[in-house]
């Protein structure tokens, strides 16, 4: 009985997934970690990697304390800052360690996210 119910749930979810894809035609895709994925996967990825910065830089990058804010910063400024942190061209306490953990395309995506916040 329980197993049947679980299977029903899985079936419902699968149906939904195919239903959505079918309705939208060939869904737009994106490249993530070398794999082609629905564009929604990359959008979700950008959302959460940007949100990892909130803990230090403030929710949505809006700072009320000593760590500088990121919200509304110029996109190119942010990308350049990340590259310079990574390459050790700009001094930092933690940012080199963070910059080394993300890729160039992630810098771009995160920078676009914060640049768009008013």
């Amino acid at each position: 009985m329980n197993m049947k119910r679980r299977e029903a749930v899985v079936a419902a979810i699968l149906w939904l997934a195919t239903g959505v894809a079918g309705a939208a035609g060939p869904a737009p895709t994106c490249l993530i970690s070398g794999k082609e994925k629905p564009a929604s996967v990359c959008a979700a990825h950008t959302k959460t990697i940007s949100a990892t910065c909130f803990i230090c830089h403030g929710p949505n990058g809006k700072s009320v304390a000593a760590i500088p804010g990121l919200a509304g910063q110029d996109k190119d400024y942010l990308v350049t800052a990340m590259r310079e942190f990574r390459d050790g061209k700009r001094e930092s306490t933690v940012m080199q360690k963070y910059a080394l953990g993300y890729t160039d395309s992630e810098y771009e995506a995160i920078a676009a996210f914060f640049a768009a916040i008013k």
Binding site: A17, S40, V41, A44, I49
Partner: peptide, 30 residues
């Protein structure tokens, strides 16, 4: 914990909307 929470929340949003969750999330630990 805060970072994990956001990854879980984002995954739930994708699942409830019938989309694939991000298989490659990133967590910062400080």
């Amino acid at each position: 914990s805060n970072n994990q929470a956001k990854i879980c929340a984002a995954a739930l949003v994708e699942l409830f909307n019938g989309r694939e969750p991000d298989p490659y999330p990133v967590i910062g630990s400080t």
